[in-house]
């Protein structure tokens, strides 16, 4: 793949331009007038190519999750354009969006809350296949079992309920469901932040393997910059609804240019006591 200096690849899968989502603040006695608005996402541009991972970092409330939802048209953007494989998807109706939902899937932060507790794993992972007419009847079960195998679960888990699984396994179920429609792009919104450290690495490695095998593109949203840097080719840093800096993952971490990125990185604890003592001693001298 040809890359320029900032790690961009030519030939875009998704191109987002000037995307905004403003939530109105209304006030008034009889008639609600919009007095102000919260600019949750405010003129965001980014692009992503096939097989690539864009990391999205920022503190809580910076608009990361709203951005994902606005791109996927799960909430209606206030302004801007989203091109998927060159086609505008902002303003499309539900029916027109339906075939595109196949191509773009999402994995959520809290696996427990994003799996229906009353449905068996087979139904959860199989329903996108049925919805999109990709499999039915007797083809369904083997396809679902193949997906379970793919994410490191066993085919025997088909008839189990979500509560019978640990957090890491539940996240694997969420990933299997997202993979079911063979998407080209997956939005992963804090997919490991609720998991234990030893399990986080397993899920991150699974996502990397799936990307290699299936050529998936990821938008990987997280507040843990270490993990984002590990999985992403490029990183975009968000603050107050805007992207303040974007660039190759290593460049952002090694030579951040924006003052906010610098502040964010310097706050990341370094798991190295000697290094910390050196940093503290240097700070004390200043």
């Amino acid at each position: 793949m040809a890359r320029d200096e900032e790690g961009h690849v030519s030939g875009r899968l998704l191109e987002v331009k000037g995307l905004s989502k403003h939530f109105p603040i209304k006030s008034g006695l009889l008639i609600d007038r919009e007095v102000e608005s919260v600019r949750a996402v405010d003129g965001v541009d980014f692009a992503i190519s096939s097989g690539e991972t864009l990391g999205l970092v920022g503190e809580s409330g910076c608009g990361k999750s709203t951005l994902c939802r606005a791109v996927l048209q799960l909430i209606k953007p206030t302004a801007g354009s989203v091109l998927f494989e060159g086609h505008e998807i902002v303003g499309l109706g539900d029916r027109q969006m339906q075939p595109l939902r196949r191509e773009m899937q999402m994995v959520f932060q809290n696996p427990q809350a994003s799996l229906n507790p009353r449905k068996r794993v087979g139904e959860i992972v199989g329903s996108p296949l049925k919805l999109h007419g990709l499999a039915s009847g007797s083809e369904l079960k083997p396809k679902v079992q193949e997906l379970l195998d793919r994410v490191g679960l066993s085919p025997e888990h088909y008839n189990r309920y979500p509560h019978e699984f640990s957090g890491g396994q539940q996240q694997r179920i969420g990933i299997a469901r997202a993979l079911a429609t063979r998407p080209k792009l997956i939005f992963a919104d804090e997919p490991v932040s609720k998991l234990d450290v030893s399990i986080q690495a397993q899920i991150v490695n699974l996502l990397v393997d799936l990307q290699k095998d299936l050529g998936l593109a990821y938008v990987f949203v997280a507040h843990d910059i270490g993990i984002v840097r590990h999985i992403s080719q490029r990183i975009a840093v968000m603050k107050d609804g805007k992207i303040v800096e974007e660039g190759a993952a290593d460049r952002i971490c090694e030579q951040p240019r924006d003052p906010y990125t610098q502040q964010l990185l310097s706050a990341v604890p370094i798991p190295d006591p000697r290094e910390n003592r050196t940093r503290r001693a240097a700070a004390a001298r200043e």
Partner: peptide, 16 residues
Amino acid sequence: SLTRIDRPRPDRLPQI
């Protein structure tokens, strides 16, 4: 299994 932003990244995150 720790990630470090001040070191080159490994190919694969060591996992338990």
